[in-house]
Each structure stands twice: as C-alpha cells, then as structure tokens.
Nucleic acid binder design. Structure first.
Lengths: 191, 191
DNA sequence: CCAATTCTGATAGTTGACTCTCAGATGAGA
DNA sequence: TCTCATCTGAGAGTCAACTATCAGAATTGG
C-alpha cells in the first residue's frame, strides 16, 4: 500500500512532469510553455497532467522548493531574520551541490524563481502560514507575532529583488548576494 | 489637439473602464471578472477594451497607483527606507481623504492591491527601475546601489505581508500597521 | 462643409487552460 | 487467478483571453 508499485509509478510520473516542465520553462519561459507540451515531454496525456496538478500554476508553488521549508525546520533557535537567513543559506548549500554538479544552478533559479515567488504571494496564504509557524517556532514567538510577519516580508522581499537582479546579471553570485543582503537585515528587526 | 473632444472622450472611456473594472474586482474578485463583463459595465465593446489595455493584467499595474510614485518624488532627502516609509505615509494620507469620504477605503485596497503588487513584481522591471531611481535620487545614491535595492525589497515585502493580513482582518488599521512595521525597518538598512 | 484620420462595434476566429466522459489497462488484495 | 478499485488515454467540449478584419460613425483640420 505504501511502497507499492502503484505509488512508485505515481511518484515517477509526478517527478517526470516537474522535471520536464521546469526544463521547458527554463528553455522558453513559463507563459510560452503549454500544458500540452509538458504532457508530451513527460509522456502522458494532457488530461493526466491535470490529475497530478489541478492547475499549471501549481507547478511553481513554493512548497515545490522543499529545501527551504526543510531548512527552516532544522534551523537552531534564533531571531526570525536570523532563522530565515540561515535557512536560505542551508537551502542554497544543499541545492548548490546538486545543481553545480549538473552545471545548471544559476539558470535553474533564474528561470524558475520569479514566477515561483509571485505565484505564491498571490495564491498561497497556506504556505505563508506554514513559514510563519516554522519561523515563529524557531524564534520562540507566537505565529501571529507582527515581528515574525515583518521579518518574513522583509526577507522575502529582499530575496525577490536580488533574485530578479540575479536573473539578468550573468556574472552574479546569487546565493552570496542574497546572504549579504540578508546580513543587513539581521542587525535590526527585533522580536 | 490636446484638450480636444476626442482626447477627453478617450480619457473618459479609460476612466470608465478602470472604475467599472475595479468595482467588479471588489465585488467578485479578479479572476471571476471577465473582460466581457468589464466592457459591458463600461458600455464599450470587448474589442475596444483591448484597445485601451492590451491585457487584462494591465489594469492592475502599479503605475495605476500614482500617489506612491508622486509621493516618492516629493519626499525630502533621506535614507532609502526613510524615503519609502514617508512616501507610503503620504500616499495613504492623500488617498484616505478621498476614499474615506467615499466610505470604501479599506475594501478598495484589500481588493485591488494584492493582485497589484504581484502583477507588478512579475511584469514590470520598468516600475522597479523607476522606484529605484526615485529612491536613489532622494537618498543621494546610485540607482544600482545594493542598499537601495535591499531597502525597496524589504519595504515592499513588509508592505505586502501587512496588506495580505489587512485584507482578511476587518478591524485592522492598515496604513498605521504598515507605518509601524516600516518603522522597525528604518532603524537598520544602511546607505 | 469636406476630406483625411481616427475610433468604434460587430463579427468571427485562434489559442490555451481546464473539464467531462468513457472504455480499456493495470496494480491490489483475496 | 479472479475481482475490485484505481489510473490512464482519447476525444470532445467549455470558457475566457486575445487577435484580425472591416465597414460605419465621429472628430479633426482646413
């Protein structure tokens, strides 16, 4: 039931969809990639695509970026900004190993993330709530503490700005720049 | 040529489209409102709608929120965060007068702005560049100064978070909360 | 008042996201 | 192996954003 063939096949299909989708996004952009093309690349029917992802937009939800959420849960206690900065650091470190090995790190992020951040700000209060809960927990604060909210806003705002710049600046070291920018934040935002 | 009848009519049509569109957005949400409905409410044909706005999304561009841009230009010199905070303050003050009088202030913002912020983050590097230039000017820094970038990111991130909360918290004083949150930022972010 | 320009509505068409249905395939459990 | 539940592809269909065309109406400048 759990590790059955059926489950494994589904997981494989899901991965194939995501892999092909992001490859196509990288090659030709999000809007220029149709669901039909993704389905064809993943060797499934368009109808099946929607059985895995109710909407095309769901492909780019932030929970599709597990390293960050995982990294958040693993951060040592600290102030909100510190926790978030540490999580980004850790997430990048874990991903860089893989992606650098594949030689695509920067492209991957540049292509996927602007859409990703945006789609999520608009569509998933759930994710925000989750991040908020995680950060609050690590910081020993209530989830509805304004300090947590403000820290998350500031951090993601800064990350978004750097990311946009990174996407169009070839020589840039994105993770380092993000970390540097977050360091500036770390010195203030109390709570 | 400039104040001609033709120009005035176009301006009127444009205003009608925007007014009706936002009214409908407020009533039933952005996605649930079709261009056809907007066109009907504004008493034009759907085809004409697209002559005024190439895409539905263009209705919610941030340059449709002039008070902020104007307020930015009018801010006294100061550090980036200070300038931005002051601009938000001023923008709210100017708008509140009108909107409070009409009795819709909060609804208007709650309905329009999440879409607005998001659509712009994704679609208009131009606007970001403009804001960046304005802030940099007021702060006496270069437009590509990382400090300016980070301040803008942090400020808009915080504002976005508060706005989302505001949209679903009836009793909340949005502008005040935003100002309070920005005050926390003001003490750090150098340059 | 006339002619050139511009704007508009009507209409039809394209595209792509998303839904529905149904019959056949396939893994799960006995 | 047999049956049941689930998954899939195929195909047709809906809906809304957006485009293209074109003839008629209105505004302009002279």
């Amino acid at each position: 039931m759990n590790g059955g063939l059926r489950e494994r096949k589904k997981a494989k299909t899901r991965e194939a969809i995501l892999r092909e989708a992001f490859r196509l996004f990288r090659e030709r952009g999000y809007h220029a990639t149709t669901v039909e093309q993704i389905a064809e690349a993943a060797e499934i029917s368009p109808a099946t695509f929607f059985r895995y992802f109710p909407a095309k937009e769901d492909l780019v939800r932030l929970d599709r970026f597990p390293p960050l959420v995982e990294a958040l849960a693993e951060q040592p206690p600290g102030r909100p900004v510190t926790v978030l900065r540490g999580a980004f650091r850790a997430a990048f470190a874990s991903l860089s190993a893989e992606e650098i090995a594949a030689g695509h790190e920067r492209e991957v992020f540049a292509a996927t993330v602007p859409e990703l951040l945006v789609a999520n700000l608009r569509r998933s209060p759930d994710l925000i709530r989750e991040v908020r809960a995680l950060v609050a927990d690590r910081a020993g604060l209530a989830p509805d503490d304004p300090g947590v909210r403000d820290a998350i806003g500031a951090v993601f705002g800064v990350v978004a700005m750097v990311w946009l710049e990174w996407a169009r600046t070839p020589g840039m070291d994105g993770p380092a720049e993000i970390d540097r920018a977050l360091a500036n934040l770390e010195s203030c935002l109390r709570g």
